[in-house]
Simulated scan of single mutants.
Amino acid sequence: MAAAKEGRKAPSRKSAAEEQLPGIEDARTAFAPALSGALERPRSMLRALRFRPPQLLHLEGGEAADRVALALWWAALLNCDDPEVMEPRASAMGPCLSCSSCLRLGVNMHPDLILLDGREGSIKIDDVRGLRSILGEKPHFSRWRVIIAAEAQALGIEAANSLLKVLEDPCPDTCFVFTAPQRERLLPTLVSRGWVVTLPWPEAGRPLAEELRPWEQALGRFVSEGRGWLDMTAARNGMDAAKAHQILLIGQKALADCLAGREGGMLAAVFRRMPAQALMQVDELFVECQDQLQAQVSPLLVLDSMAARLHILARR
């Protein structure tokens, strides 16, 4: 655990760029998912940790937008310019979300916030190596430097091992935050080095996001009829690991809907026609594909192989 910082004031240096504050609405839009009533318990846990923040914090559960917004909220809580936020008597207070520090953190314009965004693709070892030159420095304007690995399941094996080596050495005035759907998607050695805060799990049976429905329909049609899928993936040459994980989750959700007796979509209907033994093989296939994406196998290759093997299982 990091040393207590109660009462410590942030440095007062300001550059010309710092005077140009982002709009309050832009910042508050970024924080909005973290402010829902459903996340009051995780926020309460973070408020209790703010005087002695762990070097590494894991945020699991919820949706990706909830996890990343709460990571930004945590960064704002640690660095809010409102002096009352760090008073022990103000244990129920959150960040003000309107001071210079909060606004900049909300829109990723703060010099002491580093965001490695796995939502945009895999987090590579060069991204991690770039941290080493700054970790020995004190934060420029804040009490704490915060490094967020958003959707850290996108860490490549080399990048994850490199981060593990970074965490083996004390990093004064630096807090790491990893967000992931489940802690099991990360290296166990990384999970063991941090605190885990679990957000409420998504409601079972919730409809797919609108942008994922064409993929669910295409996969269901291919598994059933053996056509259409390869044309769709061929048109997506820019397919990255983050998008592939979302498509894999379509299959996992369809399997869960099938097993729970929920109606689901076209793919769940295909699964309902398959015997129990085949459904066990489908589950094992999804785990295998997840491991392949984690090992940075080509996302298109993983998805096309998954679709072909699901079609074979359905035909049998």
Score class of each variant (00 low, 15 high):
residue 1 M to Q: 03
residue 12 S to N: 07
residue 13 R to A: 15
residue 14 K to N: 08
residue 14 K to F: 04
residue 16 A to Y: 09
residue 19 E to T: 00
residue 20 Q to Y: 03
residue 22 P to C: 11
residue 24 I to N: 10
residue 26 D to N: 14
residue 26 D to Q: 07
residue 28 R to P: 14
residue 29 T to G: 10
residue 30 A to R: 14
residue 31 F to D: 10
residue 32 A to G: 06
residue 32 A to V: 03
residue 33 P to A: 12
residue 34 A to S: 13
residue 36 S to K: 11
residue 40 E to R: 15
residue 45 M to A: 12
residue 48 A to P: 06
residue 48 A to H: 05
residue 48 A to L: 02
residue 51 F to P: 08
residue 53 P to L: 01
residue 55 Q to H: 05
residue 60 E to M: 08
residue 62 G to L: 02
residue 62 G to E: 12
residue 66 D to S: 12
residue 71 A to D: 02
residue 72 L to G: 06
residue 77 L to N: 01
residue 88 P to G: 09
residue 89 R to F: 00
residue 95 P to I: 04
residue 96 C to M: 13
residue 97 L to M: 10
residue 113 L to G: 08
residue 114 I to W: 10
residue 116 L to T: 07
residue 122 S to K: 10
residue 125 I to S: 04
residue 126 D to P: 11
residue 126 D to H: 13
residue 127 D to Y: 00
residue 128 V to F: 14
residue 131 L to I: 03
residue 136 G to I: 00
residue 138 K to F: 00
residue 145 R to E: 05
residue 149 A to F: 06
residue 152 A to V: 03
residue 156 G to V: 06
residue 158 E to C: 02
residue 165 K to F: 13
residue 168 E to N: 05
residue 170 P to N: 00
residue 183 R to Q: 14
residue 188 P to K: 00
residue 192 S to D: 09
residue 195 W to K: 12
residue 202 P to K: 01
residue 204 A to C: 05
residue 205 G to F: 06
residue 207 P to I: 02
residue 211 E to R: 12
residue 217 Q to M: 15
residue 219 L to N: 06
residue 221 R to P: 02
residue 224 S to K: 13
residue 224 S to E: 15
residue 226 G to N: 09
residue 228 G to N: 06
residue 229 W to N: 14
residue 232 M to K: 15
residue 237 N to S: 10
residue 238 G to L: 08
residue 238 G to R: 07
residue 239 M to Q: 13
residue 241 A to M: 10
residue 246 Q to G: 12
residue 247 I to V: 15
residue 250 I to R: 05
residue 251 G to E: 04
residue 251 G to K: 07
residue 253 K to F: 04
residue 261 G to N: 02
residue 271 F to Y: 13
residue 271 F to L: 12
residue 275 P to G: 08
residue 278 A to E: 13
residue 282 V to G: 06
residue 286 F to G: 09
residue 290 Q to R: 15
residue 298 S to K: 15
residue 299 P to F: 00
residue 303 L to M: 14
residue 307 A to T: 07
residue 308 A to E: 10
residue 310 L to T: 09
residue 312 I to D: 14
residue 314 A to H: 07
residue 316 R to Q: 12
